[in-house]
Computed example of a mutant assay.
Amino acid sequence: MRDPNMTGYAPQPIAGITPSDQIAVTSRVVTCDGGGGALGHPAVALRIEAHSVTCPYCSRTFVLAEGAGDDTGH
């Protein structure tokens, strides 16, 4: 989720520098570890509130697939 209060939690994309990885997912809760094994980052669970969420470590953006994400739970 992009940070609407601009507290600095969410990364700000910089054209030509920030990776533009966009991964389509079918669940509102995703886990990101950077994908590099030992070269990645600590695993972090992210929740998609609207349409997408960006990892604060590696700037990968997870986009909710069309028609997905109506899951409910805790």
Rank of each mutant, 00 (worst) to 15 (best):
G36P: 08
A38Y: 10
R47N: 10
T72S: 08
P4C: 12
D70T: 08
C55L: 09
E49C: 05
I48R: 01
T31D: 15
Y9W: 12
M6K: 15
S52E: 10
G16Q: 11
P42W: 05
I14C: 10
G40E: 03
H41N: 03
I48C: 03
Q12Y: 14
G37H: 02
P19I: 13
G16P: 02
T7S: 14
E66G: 06
L46I: 11
Y57L: 13
D21V: 11
C55E: 04
G73H: 03
D33N: 15
G67T: 09
C32F: 04
D33V: 10
P19M: 04
T54N: 00
G73K: 07
V63M: 00
D21I: 11
E66N: 09
G67A: 12
Q22A: 13
M1D: 14
V53C: 06
M6N: 15
D21R: 15
A50N: 10
V63E: 00
A15V: 14
C32A: 14
T72M: 08
G69W: 01
I14E: 11
A43V: 06
P4I: 12
I48S: 00
Q22G: 05
V25M: 08
Y57I: 12
D70M: 12
A15L: 09
Q12F: 09
G40W: 08
D71K: 07
M1F: 06
G16Y: 13
D21K: 11
L39S: 14
G37R: 00
V44D: 00
G8L: 07
A38S: 11
A65H: 05
M6Q: 11
I14T: 14
I17K: 05
G69A: 06
T61S: 08
Y9L: 14
L46T: 09
P19N: 15
D33G: 11
C55H: 02
G37V: 01
T54G: 04
R47G: 07
V53G: 03
V44W: 00
R28Y: 04
S52A: 14
E66V: 12
V29Q: 06
Y9A: 13
P13A: 07
S20Q: 15
V29T: 13
P11G: 04
A50P: 00
I48D: 00
I14L: 14
A38G: 11
